[in-house]
Design a protein around this nucleic acid. Structure first.
Lengths: 157, 157
DNA sequence: TTCAAAAACATCGTATACGAATTAATCGTA
DNA sequence: TACGATTAATTCGTATACGATGTTTTTGAA
């Protein structure tokens, strides 16, 4: 009877491990950042914005790997907090230029140190980290380009 | 000036790659399952429930790696859909026994095939998959047990 | 036996996410 | 130069997540 594929066990599914570890990281950073109102997604946005300089919402969306409709409300809150500014581009009124502020840079600097320190404390093997990242990037590219098979429940009563 | 740690680039952060790939998988499965109302988290719940047999909400929470407060509303919807049943345990009225239905089993069977097929089509290296999963599990355990350093924005104007 | 503490779920408030629909501005081309 | 496509951003509806809190039931020690 055990002819089933080894998806039998959740632990053997790559996607489950990714899903599960992602939430663990989420809780970890929520605990690390909680006093400040910063969150992991906001940290990612600040990283991307800082590295690339002032840019449009869609450019930031691409860089941070976050959809623009997810970004919009986050940017609004971060602007209210003073971490960045948003203003319509003069040459094209459709675009909104986003720029990090000195306050945002200071926040990012401190957050980056906390992330770096926490990561060091995990004591992971550097070679394994780089190998894993390389594999995850390649997997990501394939998932992004893949045509998912369609599930159907036709005929289930 | 480039004395900064290599967290400079998002792509070099393990947590970013996990975060990013997780959302890619989410979109992938959303596309695969969309016709049916099934989602990836619900698939995980069905997998865990099917593998372990009828169990309490908290036991399912542990098995699926999902908090019970996340589970409650999901189970409610899945029960309304007919994929599982929920009933108070007779010996302890606090507990809710969850059991998969024949309909749920049929749904899971088909979903499992779709997941398996899609995964095959990604054409990933089996050795790399198992190595990666092993590393991710170890990382997960460390993240779970770690004491996150605390971020502070004291003194930022 | 009582009654505070603990356990098991559910609910609440908030924060992401994403596809789809909307709105406003710009482009292309007939 | 009109005016239908395109583009950029936002808004909307829905679905997770999680910490904190609430409710009900059960336990355990005085």
């Amino acid at each position: 009877m055990d002819q089933a594929p080894n998806t039998e066990d959740l632990k053997q599914l790559l996607c489950f491990n990714i899903y599960s570890l992602n939430r663990a990281f989420g809780r970890y950073y929520q605990a690390a950042f909680s006093e400040t109102g910063l969150t992991y997604p906001k940290f990612v946005i600040l990283m991307a914005l800082d590295a690339g300089g002032p840019m449009s919402v869609s450019a930031l969306s691409t860089r941070a790997g976050v959809e623009s409709n997810t970004l919009s409300p986050l940017l609004k809150k971060m602007a209210e907090f003073g971490a960045l500014t948003r203003q319509r581009a003069e040459d094209d009124e459709r675009r909104v230029e986003v720029a990090i502020t000195p306050k945002g840079e200071e926040m990012l600097k401190r957050a980056r140190n906390v992330v770096e320190q926490g990561f060091q404390e995990l004591g992971l093997n550097p070679k394994q980290i780089t190998d894993t990242i390389e594999f995850l990037e390649a997997t990501h590219a394939r998932v992004e380009n893949a045509e998912p098979p369609k599930l159907s429940f036709d005929g289930i009563k």
